[in-house]
Simulated scan of single mutants.
Amino acid sequence: MSDPLTIQPIAPEATYALRHKVLWPDKPLAYVMIAEDAAGHHFGAFQNGELVAVISLFVTGAEARFRKIAARPDCQRQGIGSQLLRHVFEEAQRLGATRIWCDARQDSAAFYARFGMQPEGEIFYKGPVAYVRMACAL
């Protein structure tokens, strides 16, 4: 039987391996590092003592942005990403944000829509991957 999932703050560096493995495995590790990482709030989801998913939150005044949500492939589609996203929405509100947004991979837009996020603007590309900005009020 699995231990319950716990979500806790982690160092930015602790997010890199999962970001790399899940989001951009064909790029160098440096590709998943964000210049603003030191100013962000980073969270890890842990199950049985192992880091299974990560997300990073950046709050500027009333606006929050989350980036680089990634779950280990064997832990996807189990509700872990949903728990992380709910946690980040609550944390953004606690930090004073009234709006939250992300640049979502287009194939994940339906996931974010379940949290009330709506597309804004045109589809754009990072390399071959289609993205759309998604946002909502908190």
Rank of each mutant, 00 (worst) to 15 (best):
M1C: 09
S2A: 15
S2Y: 13
P4D: 07
P4C: 04
P4Y: 03
T6K: 11
T6H: 07
Q8V: 11
Q8C: 11
Q8S: 13
Q8N: 11
Q8I: 11
P9I: 14
P9D: 11
P9W: 15
A11P: 10
P12S: 14
A14N: 04
T15Y: 03
Y16T: 13
Y16L: 10
A17L: 06
A17Q: 10
A17D: 08
H20L: 12
L23A: 01
L23N: 06
W24L: 09
W24S: 00
K27D: 08
K27G: 03
P28D: 11
P28I: 12
L29H: 09
L29R: 05
L29F: 07
A30E: 15
A30Q: 14
V32N: 00
V32F: 14
V32Q: 02
M33S: 01
A35E: 15
A35L: 13
H42P: 09
F43P: 01
F43G: 00
F43E: 02
F46D: 00
Q47N: 11
N48D: 15
G49H: 07
A53S: 12
V54E: 04
S56Q: 06
L57F: 11
F58H: 08
F58V: 03
F58Q: 01
F58D: 01
V59F: 06
G61C: 10
G61M: 04
G61N: 05
G61K: 04
A62D: 13
A64M: 08
R65D: 01
R65Q: 13
R65Y: 04
F66M: 07
R67W: 12
K68A: 06
I69S: 09
I69F: 07
C75V: 09
C75T: 10
R77T: 02
Q78D: 02
I80T: 05
I80A: 08
G81L: 13
G81D: 04
G81H: 05
S82D: 08
Q83V: 05
Q83F: 11
L84E: 04
L85F: 05
R86K: 14
R86D: 15
H87N: 06
V88Q: 02
F89E: 06
E91I: 10
E91C: 12
E91M: 12
A92N: 08
A92E: 02
A92V: 01
R94L: 15
R94H: 14
R94P: 00
L95T: 04
A97W: 00
A97T: 00
A97N: 05
R99P: 02
W101F: 15
C102F: 09
D103L: 08
D103R: 05
D103E: 07
R105S: 13
Q106C: 12
S108N: 14
S108R: 10
S108I: 10
A109Y: 05
A109D: 03
A109C: 08
F111S: 00
Y112I: 01
R114S: 08
G116K: 03
G116V: 03
Q118K: 15
Q118A: 11
P119H: 09
E120P: 04
G121F: 11
E122F: 04
I123Q: 14
Y125M: 10
Y125H: 15
G127Q: 06
G127V: 04
V129N: 06
A130D: 13
Y131F: 13
Y131A: 00
V132M: 00
M134S: 10
M134V: 06
A135D: 09
A135K: 13
C136N: 09
A137E: 15
L138R: 05
